[in-house]
């Protein structure tokens, strides 16, 4: 569990998108809180996974950390510096420390730039001279097991897995201390997924990078992370070390997620007792009072509609926001 040595410390971050009405003179009639007060910490060299279903705000949180969207409240401390307070000009030199790998290996590469130019772009922004750029790009390509001869090719000449490697090489070219992985394998075929996951793990072991891994596939999360934070409707509902979370989930939502995750084993898959949640995820424009999960929770009681459950520490590093958490 990271304490003062946290590399990234996110505190009470909110992200709100205005709901506008009117075509000519739009006015604000409400807001969607995509992220509603999230605090997480990432230690150097560790992998924190952020798990949740679509619309839970996990990608928005990542974009707020990277300042691709503006946090409306809260702090994003990277090595003690609050990134949300930096001017765009002061932010730019910080970008090299926190990089991003995108979900979509097609849209995330400039179609008219060669692989080498794409990988060298962050280096160029650091003001490196041309020869050094080429050299570093070559090293980055070798590191992700791409043949440097392919550097002159354009993205369309690569397969999905290879494109994702280019994206990883681009993120690594500036030797970041942290990389945000936004569903890096969910757009890839199964056999290619394994390859990219193995590569990411090897790179972490070699370079000591911290990962913030955003995912919805729990099996992949289990394989990949040190700690896991479960997100629901813009809030973190449970954080725990990986083994503990998968063995003793405390939040009813985590339990339901685990029980719903399909297993590639016909015998056990059919014997399993599933917790099938009723209903749908509420709209973030119209959040339930009290606990955000109560509308679907099998354990919900009167108190859940009134009081938003405070975080409870169950064990070292295991924090859950639930009135009726499994001890």
């Amino acid at each position: 569990m990271p304490a003062e040595d946290a590399l990234l410390k996110v505190e009470g971050v909110h992200v709100e998108f205005p709901i506008l009405k009117g075509l000519v003179f739009p006015r604000r009639v409400g807001s969607i809180s995509a992220v509603a007060g999230v605090s997480i910490e990432v230690a150097p060299g560790e992998t924190l996974s952020l798990v949740g279903e679509s619309g839970c705000g996990k990608s928005t949180l990542a974009r707020a950390i990277l300042r691709l969207v503006t946090a409306s409240a809260g702090q994003v401390l990277f090595k003690g510096v609050d990134l949300t307070k930096l001017s765009p000009a002061k932010m730019r030199p910080f970008r090299r420390h926190v990089q991003l790998v995108f979900q979509n290996p097609y849209a995330s590469l400039h179609p008219r730039m060669t692989a080498r130019e794409i990988i060298a772009e962050p280096l160029r922004m650091l003001g490196m001279d041309r020869r050094e750029q080429v050299e570093r790009a070559k090293q980055a390509m070798q590191r992700v097991q791409l043949r440097p001869e392919f550097g002159d090719r354009y993205p369309f000449a690569f397969s999905g897995g290879q494109r994702q490697r280019i994206g990883i090489a681009r993120a690594l070219s500036v030797n970041p201390e942290m990389v945000v992985l936004d569903e890096p394998v969910s757009a890839l075929d199964v056999s290619v997924q394994a390859d990219v996951l193995n590569l990411l793990k090897d790179l972490q072991a070699d370079l000591g990078i911290a990962y913030l891994f955003i995912a919805h596939n729990l099996a992949v999360v289990r394989h990949f992370s040190d700690r896991v934070a479960v997100m629901y409707l813009g809030k973190i509902v449970e954080t725990a070390p990986r083994d503990r979370l998968f063995k003793r989930p405390a939040h009813p939502y985590t339990e339901a997620l685990l029980s719903a995750a399909p297993m590639p084993d016909p015998i056990r898959e059919r014997k399993r007792q599933r917790i099938v949640l009723r209903g749908e995820i509420p709209s973030p424009a119209n959040r339930p009072t009290g606990c955000c999960f109560r509308t679907r929770c099998p354990k919900a009681a009167a108190i859940c509609a009134q009081i938003d459950p405070p975080p409870v520490t169950l064990a070292q590093g295991h924090v859950v926001n639930c009135h009726f958490a499994n001890a």
């Binding site: 397969s159 897995g161 290879q162 075929d189 199964v190 056999s191 290619v192 997924q193 394994a194 390859d195 996951l197 193995n198 793990k201 729990l218 099996a219 992949v220 289990r222 394989h223 990949f224 998968f246 685990l258 995750a261 297993m263 590639p264």
Partner: peptide, 24 residues
């Protein structure tokens, strides 16, 4: 066999996933 070994499991640990080399 490769496909089955390439997916991680929700209740078992493997140090390293099996990856089918190359592409279709």
């Amino acid at each position: 066999a490769g496909l089955l070994a390439a997916v991680p499991s929700i209740d078992a640990d493997v140090a390293r996933l099996y990856a089918i080399r190359g592409t279709p």
